[in-house]
Design a protein around this nucleic acid. Structure first.
Lengths: 245, 245
DNA sequence: TGTACATCAGTGAACGCGCGTTCACTGATGTAC
DNA sequence: TGTACATCAGTGAACGCGCGTTCACTGATGTAC
């Protein structure tokens, strides 16, 4: 950016200062995450983070230019954490349906273990906060992972897509367009794109999955499907079936 | 409660003081709702509400004993508002599927028109707030309305429930127990209780409906299914089909 | 290798703000006789 | 109907708190010659 910065040689021994800076940047974020887990995003405060680290609050500004930037870092980390968990579950092996089930259970497990981080990314938006572009990539890891599974569900050439759902609704014009655009984005080449029907059903399964988790964590099942383990398991199977896994 | 209060005659002209009190109680709540709509629940402040009404902040304590109580009133109102909207849509006439569609669209319409009220009841819980029992009744209006529709979906005696879903998952022991308990709660007599399969599918449709609305309002569809009108319409049809409407 | 200078981390004080809630009070409205 | 008393609404000041952010500073770490 600035010329002064560009003067520095590209390869150069890492100074103690730089190591310390990288470490503290990480420590600040981790302390913030710890507090987020306890009090939630709304009650998270820079001063409290600094206090816990034995620093003065103004010192944090050497590492994060504002509270919003720290929040952004936490959001990105949270998306990456669920994304990672989902990817690992899918990579675990087994049939497509088994990996689908594993992914759903892993995501739910992560959400229950980190309810405030879950709420930060899937709950009501933090008032006054506007998510920057940098969050988009991490946010897509889960849907992309599920899409990957979906590709395995496509019926062999010749059989109509979604053949198990005779009588179900058809994907119409505008929706098919959106689906095709997403499929093209994902694959690059339009050759083996996921058909609109399959993609839309996948999107609904994705929605259903997080709808379930949100209802469970946010208390809508209290007094009815509580605990929600069995409802969740049933729904996961139903979704797999609907999607053709 | 207290003897002193019981001394008052049961029928008695309503004093000007009492009228003024009832009115102001209402006005405070409405001003609070106005501010909630603008800034969200987290940023709602008693002082600001009082300011806007031309009162001093301490005066509010004659009407609501604490901020939490005012929040509770807003939550109850919000649940009643969606509940009302859903009930009216269902009462509108037409086939069961038409009324189901109308209810879904009405609920979505309300949510889009009142995103902060929606977030208050279906988003991440307000930190430090514990919902009192009084919110339970209003919160059940929407699910009860949908359950009512579901009853019309039951196949005539003789046909197996959910006959359109051959190959789909079966409702197992523990889940069937929860479903039966809910059905019993709703109907009182166990005679014409909704069968577990139908009830569970209804609960999943309910979950899916609010999952969709949350994803739409909270920005998860940005860059993919945006606007979400067609995805929503498709999903509503799919749910109706799954549930047997 | 040694010295002069530049960079940067962390401090401490301050700014300016808003919040929920309590409390003693005044003055108006209602009630009992 | 008139008077004495009780009830209640609303005031204004205060308590005690925490927050995000800025800024001039000192002292340590790094760099160039």
């Amino acid at each position: 950016m600035e010329q002064g910065a560009a003067v520095r040689p590209a390869s150069r021994s890492v100074t103690a200062r730089e190591r310390a800076r990288a470490e503290l940047t990480r420590e600040i974020k981790e302390e913030a995450r710890r507090q987020l887990a306890q009090v939630g995003a709304a009650a998270l405060s820079l001063r409290s983070v600094a206090r816990e680290l034995g620093m003065v609050s103004s010192a944090l500004y050497r590492y994060y230019p504002s509270k919003e930037d720290l929040l952004t870092a936490l959001i990105i980390d949270a998306y990456n954490a669920v994304g990672e968990v989902a990817e690992q579950a899918v990579a675990g092996g087994g049939s497509a349906r088994e990996r689908w089930t594993a992914a759903c259970q892993a995501i739910r497990g992560w959400a229950r273990a980190h309810p405030h981080e879950y709420a930060l990314i899937y709950g009501s938006p933090v008032p006054g906060y506007r998510a920057p572009e940098a969050t988009i990539g991490p946010a897509t890891r889960v849907p992309l992972t599920l899409l990957g599974l979906l590709r395995e569900a496509r019926p062999p050439a010749g059989a109509p897509a979604g053949s198990r759902l005779e009588g179900g609704p058809q994907v119409g014009g505008a929706l098919a367009g959106q689906a095709a655009a997403i499929a093209a984005l994902v694959e690059g080449t339009a050759g083996d794109a996921i058909p609109p029907e399959a993609l839309v059903r996948g999107a609904l399964a994705w929605t259903q999955l997080f709808g379930l988790i949100s209802f469970e964590l946010f208390g809508q099942y209290v007094g009815s499907f509580d605990p929600a383990d069995d409802l969740f398991a049933y729904s996961v199977t139903q979704m797999a079936w609907l999607v053709g896994l």
